[in-house]
C-alpha cells in the first residue's frame, strides 16, 4: 500500500483546499452582501497574478513591494467594476446578473491572454528552497506561505465581520438592505467595499498559485472549481465556504489517488468535484450551512 503517497495527496489537498476556501469566501462575500453571483471570480485571481508578475518582472520589485501595489490596483479595479458594470444590474433578473459576470469573465480572460500571451510564465523565485520537508512530507514553500496567509485571511475575516464597524454594516446589509439603509448604512459603499475586498483577497490567492504553477490562463479555472466548494457549504455561509473548500481540495486529490491506483478512468481530478456537487444538490439543495430560502407570497 502506498500510504505515504496518499498522505502526501491529502496534505496537498488540504493546502489547496484552504486556497479554494479563501476564494470561495470571497465569492460568498460578494454574494452575501450584493446578491450577485460572481462568475468572474477566477479572473480576479488571473488579473491579480498577472499584475503582480508584471510588477515583479518588469520593474524588478521585490514581493513585499509588488504585492501591496497589486492590492491597491485590485481594490480600485473591484470598486470600478462594481460602479460601472454591476450597479446597473441591481434589481434585474438573476439570469441577467449571471450573464453580466460571465461576460466580464470572457472579456478579462481574452484581455489577459492578449496582453500576456497564452503560455505559463514562472514567477521570479521568492524562496531559497522551492520545497521544504515537514515531517517527512515534501511541501512547496509557497504552499506553506499560502497556508499561513490563508489562515491569517480567515482570521482577519472573522475579526472584520465580528468586531469592526464596516463589517457590522456589511452584515446588516446582507441581512436586510432596507433596514440597514434606514439606520444610516451606505449600501453603495458596502457594495463597493465587498467587491474591493473580494478582488484583493482573490488576487492574493492568484499570486500564491502563480508562484507554484506559474501564471497562465489556467488560473481562471479556479473560479469554476470554487462552485462545488461554495455549493457544498451553502452559498451564503462564510464558514461553509471554508469547509467546502477543504472538502473539495481533499476530495479531488483522493479521487486522483483512487483513480491512479485502482480505477484508471482518468481525469477524475477535474470531474470528481462536479459529481460531488450534483449529489449534494440532490440531497441538500441549500448546502451544508446555507440558509433555506423561505419565500412569502
Amino acid at each position: 500500500m502506498n500510504l505515504d503517497f496518499l498522505l502526501q495527496l491529502v496534505v496537498n489537498g488540504l493546502i489547496v483546499g484552504t486556497l479554494y476556501g479563501v476564494v470561495a469566501m470571497c465569492f460568498v462575500l460578494i454574494y452575501k452582501s450584493t446578491q450577485i453571483v460572481n462568475f468572474a471570480q477566477g479572473e480576479f485571481l488571473l488579473i491579480g497574478a498577472w499584475v503582480c508578475w508584471w510588477f515583479m518582472t518588469e520593474y524588478r520589485l521585490p514581493l513585499w513591494a509588488g504585492l501591496p501595489l497589486t492590492f491597491a490596483f485590485m481594490a480600485i479595479f473591484g470598486v470600478l467594476l462594481q460602479i460601472v458594470v454591476l450597479r446597473p444590474m441591481i434589481g434585474q433578473p438573476i439570469i441577467s446578473v449571471i450573464m453580466v459576470t460571465i461576460g466580464l469573465s470572457m472579456v478579462f480572460q481574452a484581455l489577459m491572454g492578449w496582453i500576456f500571451g497564452v503560455f505559463a510564465k514562472p514567477f521570479p523565485p521568492v524562496f531559497e528552497h522551492a520545497a521544504v520537508n515537514v515531517l517527512g512530507l515534501q511541501v512547496q514553500s509557497a504552499y506553506l506561505m499560502s497556508l499561513l496567509i490563508s489562515v491569517v485571511i480567515m482570521a482577519g475575516f472573522y475579526w472584520f465581520f465580528k468586531h469592526s464597524r464596516i463589517g457590522l454594516a456589511m452584515r446588516a446589509t446582507a441581512y436586510d438592505q432596507q433596514a440597514a439603509q434606514s439606520l444610516g448604512v451606505s449600501v453603495k459603499q458596502v457594495f463597493a467595499m465587498a467587491w474591493a475586498i473580494s478582488a484583493v483577497v482573490s488576487a492574493l490567492a492568484g499570486v500564491v498559485v502563480g508562484m507554484v504553477n506559474g501564471v497562465s490562463s489556467a488560473l481562471s479555472f479556479f473560479g469554476i472549481k470554487v462552485f462545488p466548494a461554495v455549493i457544498l457549504g451553502g452559498l451564503d455561509s462564510i464558514v461553509g465556504a471554508i469547509v467546502g473548500g477543504l472538502v473539495i481540495g481533499v476530495l479531488e486529490n483522493v479521487a486522483e489517488y483512487f483513480d491512479s491506483q485502482w480505477l484508471h478512468i482518468g481525469n477524475l481530478y477535474t470531474v470528481a468535484p462536479f459529481y460531488a456537487l450534483v449529489i449534494i444538490l440532490m440531497i441538500k439543495p441549500y448546502g451544508l450551512f446555507g440558509t433555506r430560502n423561505i419565500e412569502r407570497i
Binding site: M99, I102, G103, M106, V107
Partner: peptide, 10 residues
C-alpha cells in the same frame, strides 16, 4: 473576438 462577444453580452 472573444472580448467582443463578452462585451456585446454586457
Amino acid at each position: 473576438k472573444q472580448m467582443a462577444i463578452g462585451l456585446a453580452i454586457i
